[in-house]
Amino acid sequence: MTDDVSRLLEQLGQPDLEYRVFADKVETPGYWPIFRLIHAHPALARLPGAQRRSYPAERAAPSGEGWSGADRRVGGPGKLFRRYGEAQAPAAPEPEAPSDDIRGLLRRLSE
């Protein structure tokens, strides 16, 4: 128990309170574009963690964290307004799976 915690418990009159120090979590920081610039900066190449980290391509906002309150309530950005048109519009066809077959692509274009 650190000194500051023991002093605090003493001031609170709770010296017998059970206290546990949790180990630091190993965290992965969220993605911010400035991180990529800093990691790639040549002036910082001599730092221990420079260039060691590789960032994936631009990541989408994870699990709705960046959505506004209205978007979060309806399940995603834009759905708040999109749903008004869904009742009248016919069901959209299922998008075709992407294919590398050039003949298939030409056939779809000609239809």
Binding site: P29, W32, P48
Partner: peptide, 18 residues
């Protein structure tokens, strides 16, 4: 604070024993 936490975590990794 989310941004501050992310920057602190990133700096811990970048600076290491520095």
């Amino acid at each position: 604070l989310r941004l501050g936490r992310d920057i602190a975590t990133m700096l811990r990794g970048l600076l290491g024993d520095r």
